[in-house]
Each structure stands twice: as C-alpha cells, then as structure tokens.
Design a protein around this nucleic acid. Structure first.
Lengths: 193, 193
DNA sequence: GTCTATAAAAAGATAGAC
DNA sequence: GTCTATCTTTTTATAGAC
C-alpha cells in the first residue's frame, strides 16, 4: 500500500468524522497499519495526517478544477462567448469528487469544527478564494462585469457547500444533484444564449 | 444560573467545536459547574447535553421561524400577492440567530461530523424539512406552483448553509450578509412585483 | 445542587526489537 | 517499514460527603 493510498484513507476518515472524531485506532484499523507505523509515515502525528489529507484535497482542486477553468486551449474561442462547457466539466469533476453528494467536504468539516489551526485555515481559505477567482476569471473573459463575476463565483461555492450540507441533512442526494445540474446555466445566465 | 442558560452555553460550545471537539472539561469551564454537577443536570452525559442543545435550536426554529411563516393574521391579505415581508422577517431572525454569520449551524456541524445517532439525525432532518415546507407553503399560498415552491425552499436552505460555510472559510461574513439580504427577493422573483 | 476524589476507559504518542 | 509493549495524558463517568 502506497503513501498516497494511506492519505486517501485519511481523507476519507477526516471528512467523514471530522478532525476530533477520528482516532488513531480508527486510522490504524482502516489502513491496516499499527499505530507506531503511522508515526513512521507521519512523525507529526494526527495533526500531520490531517495536513496530508488537506494537501490531497487542495491538489485535487488545482489539478482537476483550477486547471480546467484556466485552460486557454482548444475551447478558448467558443468559451469567450459562452463558457458553459467549462462549467459543465467543473461540475462533472465536482460531482465525482463528492461521490454524487454522498461525501462531505473536508474544508467545510474542518472549518465548521474549528479544529484547524491558523496555518490550515489559511490553506482552506486559499482553496475557496482560488476556486471563486477561477470561476470569476472565466466569466470576465466572457464579458461579464468583474464584481458580478466574483459574486457568481461565490454563489457557486455557496450552492455546492450548501447542497452538500442539505443533502446530508435530508439523507437525500437529490438537492446536490439538482444544484450540480443547474449550476452551469446559472453561472452563464444572461450571456450568449 | 438557570438550566436554559446552561443549555445556551452547551449550544455555543457544540456548534463551535462539534460533538467530538467538546469535552466535559471545556463544558465545566464554560458553565462554571463541576463535572459531577453536569451529570446531575444531564444524567445521560455528553450525549444528553448535545440533545439538549439540539432541542434548543429546534425550538428556536418553531418559535421564531415556522411560526412567522405560518402566521395567517394581519399581513395575510398582502402576503397572498407578495409574501416578501414574511421572508424579510425570517431573514432578520436568521441573521440574529447566526450572529451576522459568525456562528455556525448546529445541524450542519452534527450532520457533517456524523456524530449524531439515528435519533438525532432524524430530528435534524425534521428541522430542514419543516423549514423548507414552511417556505414552500407561503409561496404556494401566493400562487406559485408547488414543485417550484419546494425547490425555492430548498434553495433558501442551501443558500443559508452554504453562505455560513463560505463565510467561515473566508473568515469574512460578507457572503452571508449578501445572501441574507438578497434572499427575500430571490424567493419572490416573478411574483406580484 | 454542588463539590472533591477517584475510577475506568480511551486517547495520542514513544521505545525498542525484528 | 512494521510490530509489540508501554507510557502519559485526557476523557468520560461515578461515589459519596456536604
């Protein structure tokens, strides 16, 4: 089992139970590693394990979301008039990442629990900001006003995070599914359609 | 110090740190009660304390939100054409309850953390459902299609919960403030205006 | 109703053998 | 790189005096 696989297990646990809800015993059980072995891979203990999980999420954001949105190749021309295709790709990735709404968001869990120290919280804030800015940049390139573009980026974040909370609360992924499906249109409303 | 005051302290702690993040030591510190005294008031221990906090939130919902929305007096006539005043009252109450966006939502924290047992989760699901249904009922009374009305109720929940998450993530209450301010209009869009 | 004292269990973390 | 064994601290919870 590779280190990446261990981190994936950590991510699964932390986003499911929160930082305080995860114990080394659970981690040991899920990874199959003894506690002492966990400290070999993560000398900083539980805190370092949570950081590793956060790193994986932020890397997912960079690789699978920010890159798509910032991509100026191929679709560039049509995107300038209507970037809906980019937002559809973004939503597909997001839907997959959150397992159709059944997973929770590590950022939300850590932030709501106030378990993250200043350094972690800064990295979470960075993630939210970057995602919003990347959406806004696409919309500005398509001709939208900058203030409105940023607002729509925020609204997209709000919709995704809120839908995850509601779907978990209702034990029904339908709200999340609806949000994911409507989001591209909403982001592009009033544009070249 | 009355029992209600203790429960308010419990609510403050649980929504700030989550179920697992709160320890009896913290509770003892914040309430000024010794641990043994806490068990006098809440024989069921930490689980019962969390239930009491949830009860207080759900009672707030019934008293300050559901009642306003279901109220058929006074404003009834004008509300039939445009219920925006009711939604403004709802948003004012919500804004106060969440301390302008600086508080988190106990439902969201418990649900995301998966700390709540089936019974608690059912009470949280009830809360979400009732709030959504109450909004939808107002909109239906004002002439909106039932399916669309329910969708708008869900969207309101999504907006509130998502804005809380984002505002905490960004350490900036502006997104929550904007959502609260825009919500009444959004709920009533396309109606008697 | 509150306290001191204490128990019992579980938590995070380390030493040292293999 | 993984393990067993152990340590320390913290946590939940209780007994019993006042």
């Amino acid at each position: 089992m590779s280190k990446q696989a261990y981190v994936s297990t950590l991510l699964k646990l932390f986003r499911q139970f929160g930082y305080e809800g995860v114990t080394l015993s659970k981690i040991s059980q899920e990874t199959g590693l003894g506690k002492a072995s966990l400290y070999h891979h993560f000398p900083g203990g539980k805190a370092e394990m949570a950081e590793a999980a956060l790193t994986q999420v932020n890397q997912w954001l960079e690789t699978n979301i920010l890159q798509i949105l910032a991509d100026t190749a191929a679709l560039a021309e049509s995107c300038e008039t209507n970037p809906i295709a980019k937002f559809q790709s973004m939503c597909e990735e997001t839907n997959r990442f959150f397992n159709e709404g059944k997973n929770s968001c590590l950022w939300a869990v850590f932030v709501m629990e106030q378990s993250s120290d200043d350094l972690m919280h800064d990295r979470i804030r960075w993630a939210f900001s970057q995602w919003i800015a990347a959406i806004a940049k696409v919309l500005v390139a398509a001709g939208l006003d900058e203030t409105l573009a940023t607002q729509r980026g925020e609204d997209a974040m709000i919709a995704i995070q809120g839908a995850l909370v509601l779907s978990h609360g209702l034990k029904d992924v339908a709200p999340f599914q609806r949000v994911i499906q409507q989001l591209p249109q909403q982001l592009c409303q009033g544009m070249g359609d």
